[in-house]
Computed example of a mutant assay.
Amino acid sequence: MEENQEEHKPRIKPIIEGAETLSLGISMVVAVLIGVAIGLGLKKLTGITWLLWVGVAIGLAAAFLNVYKAYSKQYKEFEKLAKDPRYNMGKSIDEDDDED
């Protein structure tokens, strides 16, 4: 039974990682759409047409923020792997790579 459980772990992990990547794309689209909706709402409430573009800018800023957060998370994971002796091939992360 233990072998069965070990077989399922590798199968589930790629699915979860794929769902996280998919959710990033969806969150970007949703952030822009919410920004456009805010802009349209402000335009309708006030009658000022440039407020639509303010909403679009808010949505784009939120989308870029989502990408930055995902990048930061992945970079932290990379640094953990770089410090792991199994993956750094005997090099320290602080060593210079200026080998001429």
Rank of each mutant, 00 (worst) to 15 (best):
M1E: 10
N4G: 02
Q5W: 00
E6V: 07
E7I: 04
E7H: 06
H8T: 07
H8Q: 12
K9Y: 12
K9H: 08
P10M: 06
P10F: 04
I12G: 01
K13P: 01
P14L: 01
P14A: 00
P14D: 07
I15N: 02
I15K: 04
E17K: 11
G18K: 01
G18A: 01
A19I: 14
A19L: 14
E20I: 10
T21G: 13
T21C: 03
L22Y: 04
S23Y: 07
L24N: 06
L24T: 11
L24W: 01
L24C: 06
I26P: 07
I26F: 14
I26L: 14
S27K: 10
M28C: 15
V29T: 08
V30T: 12
V32I: 15
V32T: 11
V32H: 07
L33V: 13
L33S: 13
G35H: 02
V36P: 13
V36Y: 09
V36D: 12
A37I: 04
A37P: 13
I38T: 09
G39V: 03
L40P: 02
G41V: 00
K43L: 03
G47D: 01
I48F: 05
I48G: 01
I48Y: 05
W50K: 08
L51H: 07
L51D: 00
L51P: 11
L52T: 13
W53F: 13
V54C: 04
V54M: 04
V54K: 03
I58W: 00
G59Y: 08
L60R: 11
L60Y: 14
A61C: 11
A61S: 15
A62V: 11
A63W: 02
F64C: 13
L65R: 00
N66C: 15
N66I: 14
Y71K: 10
Y71N: 11
Y71C: 07
S72H: 03
S72E: 13
K73H: 05
Q74T: 15
Q74F: 03
Y75W: 05
K76V: 08
K76L: 02
F78T: 11
F78M: 13
L81A: 11
A82N: 09
A82E: 12
K83I: 00
K83E: 15
P85E: 09
P85T: 06
R86W: 02
R86H: 10
Y87C: 01
Y87K: 00
N88H: 14
M89I: 07
G90W: 04
S92Q: 08
S92P: 02
S92D: 12
S92F: 05
I93Q: 14
I93K: 12
E95P: 08
D96V: 03
D97S: 12
D98Y: 01
E99H: 06
D100G: 03
D100Y: 05
